[in-house]
Design a protein around this nucleic acid. Sequence first.
DNA 1: TTGACATATGAGCGACCGCGCATATATAAT
DNA 2: ATTATATATGCGCGGTCGCTCATATGTCAA
Lengths: 95, 95
Amino acid sequence: MKPVNEIDKTVTLFKLFSDPTRLKIIAMLVEGEYCVHEIHDTLNISQSSVSHQLAMLRERNVVKTRREGKLIFYSLKDEHVKELFETAYAHANEC
Amino acid sequence: MKPVNEIDKTVTLFKLFSDPTRLKIIAMLVEGEYCVHEIHDTLNISQSSVSHQLAMLRERNVVKTRREGKLIFYSLKDEHVKELFETAYAHANEC
DNA sequence: TTGACATATGAGCGACCGCGCATATATAAT
DNA sequence: ATTATATATGCGCGGTCGCTCATATGTCAA
């Protein structure tokens, strides 16, 4: 039987992926690096909401940022996120 | 850019895994087949709560049931669930 | 059929959280 | 300095959802 606190960490990870707004953002970042207003425009999500969700993803170490003038570019911090997304996406849509 | 409704299906899947009670149940069912009161006893979750969560997992086609007398045994419906759980569990606990 | 055990289910409450709104901060251009 | 653009953040509301409680249903034994 797996330790409860490791299950809880896994829950925390799943929670991050279990909101449509966040998952759309994650799906977009799987494709590459984008700044906030590109995400806002592409996904039709308000600037406030995008910023809120990106802040959460940043706190949880899912994404990293890079400033370039007025723009802040977001990208995935590592490949784990991508792999987990791809695995779930495949399973959710194959049967 | 991935279609929105397929993202939404993926969200639905992630939501299923993003509650501690459900994920503990899922983690237990990854190990084998168990009846309701075994889950109740092992995980220290109320009988009502276990039944509610199992009902949800049944509706979403994550688990299947088998009756044996008064007992109803639950098990995972396919290997997808197991794979997704293992992938997330590994990533959540390795860094 | 009555009682005990196993499981399911409906109702209602409370907590969590994503969102919009307003505003703050940061950078660059004039 | 002022203005415009880009992004971040605090607050409060509303919806969602997991829980408890009570009760229903199902199965078996006596």
